[in-house]
Design a binder for these strands. Structure first.
Lengths: 215, 215
DNA sequence: TGTTGACATAATAATAGTTACCATGTACTT
DNA sequence: AAGTACATGGTAACTATTATTATGTCAACA
């Protein structure tokens, strides 16, 4: 019942690229690297083979923070440290402290097969960025949102750009095809993105970021 | 700049249901429970509020193994144990061993903000199941595949069901609208799901699981 | 005291990451 | 040499999550 594992060219390249990375790459990071050697390879092949190779014990699939799975060529026992900002993952070695073990009366009936230790914080690169951005709001711009503009948002922002002074949402509603309620809804979203500021209650104006976003 | 958090009825229910759960539920598990109290609540509201409540520090968002995020009402420092089979998460308390700290020369330049310790293994329930299923293959049936049948798979399986004895893929191809190559492809998938067995090389027959899957 | 805008919600579309499907290609087995 | 098993590329489908938007609710100011 032992499986035969065919070592295809694709698998060789995936393995060797993973071996060259010391960064615990995600499947699509590895795909980008492998594509340089095998331009016609499919993303599905990379996913499939990472799964197969890790089941065969040739590589290790990591369970680390963040939404993407990561893979490691280094099979030795070691732990990781995770950057909460850029999601980078590095190795750490806990030397003496080695393996934690769980006292039997604390295992809650589980058959324990291992333990995972993960430190987290800011990596050196992100520490620097954090210090620079420390004044005022953070505006780190993660996630998928951040810069995009929907059609309605663009319409409101363009109307705001034409106003010389700060104006209320009724003025905007008049200048666009939108109703006042819809305008206020869009303005809320635009403020969140930093494209609109409110110098006084119920008065809005476009920010320099907002102008930049329009072009 | 401090946020005001409006305690709506939806939020109250989400909080109280999370408090009643001692199972570190995922967003959709919690959604199912909350829906019994508030049938008209939206899944998005649950997601949004779990995010907001955890940012406000009223609950904790956990980073544990598995693909779904989990939430915890218990804010005290504690660690977790994870079942690799059913993905259940329980609490553990490491007593004296408490907080691991990372020696400065090992932190690789990171500004460390915390540490996560997670044991994993089989929970009591899954240990029993594992023992029963130990003979032969495992057939644990995780993932999304497992039981579903595509149109072509169903066609092949139905043809196999009509055969009294084991037959080759050519016989199946003749009995269906499919070509021999396609049949062999489908049979491979069906074997993986446990719906087809191969009593002899190149001979296939439907299993009892296969018959059950057809009905 | 009625507006106005901040904050919430339900419904749904969109997104990211991953896996399934399947036609086709390649390599073992006998 | 035939026939099967295994692998691949391309793409559809899926899961979990987040964004969008019309609408609803509430608190505070004019």
């Amino acid at each position: 019942m032992d499986k035969q594992l065919r070592m295809t060219h694709q698998r060789e390249v995936i393995l060797s690229e993973l071996g060259k990375c010391h960064t615990h790459p995600t499947a699509d990071e590895l795909y980008e690297r492998v594509k340089k050697k095998l331009p016609r390879i499919s993303l599905a092949t990379v996913y499939r083979n990472l799964e197969i190779l890790s089941e065969a014990g040739l590589i290790r699939k990591l369970e680390v923070s963040g939404r993407q799975k990561r893979f490691d060529w280094d099979l030795r026992q070691h732990d990781h440290i995770y950057c909460v900002r850029c999601h980078r993952v590095d190795n750490i070695d806990l030397e003496g402290k080695k393996q934690l073990s769980l006292p039997a009366h604390e295992s809650r009936g589980y058959k324990v097969s291992g333990c995972r230790i993960e430190f987290f914080g800011l990596c050196p690169g992100c520490r620097k960025i954090q210090q620079k951005t420390r004044k005022g709001e953070e505006k780190m711009g993660c996630k998928t949102c951040g810069t995009g503009l929907s059609d309605k948002q663009r319409e409101v922002l363009e109307a705001l750009a034409k106003c010389k002074d700060a104006c209320g949402s009724k003025d905007i509603a008049a200048a666009t095809s939108l109703e006042p309620k819809q305008v206020s809804c869009q303005i809320t979203a635009l403020k969140k993105k930093g494209y609109v500021a409110s110098p006084a209650r119920c008065k809005y104006e476009i920010t320099s970021e907002g102008k930049a976003a329009l072009s």
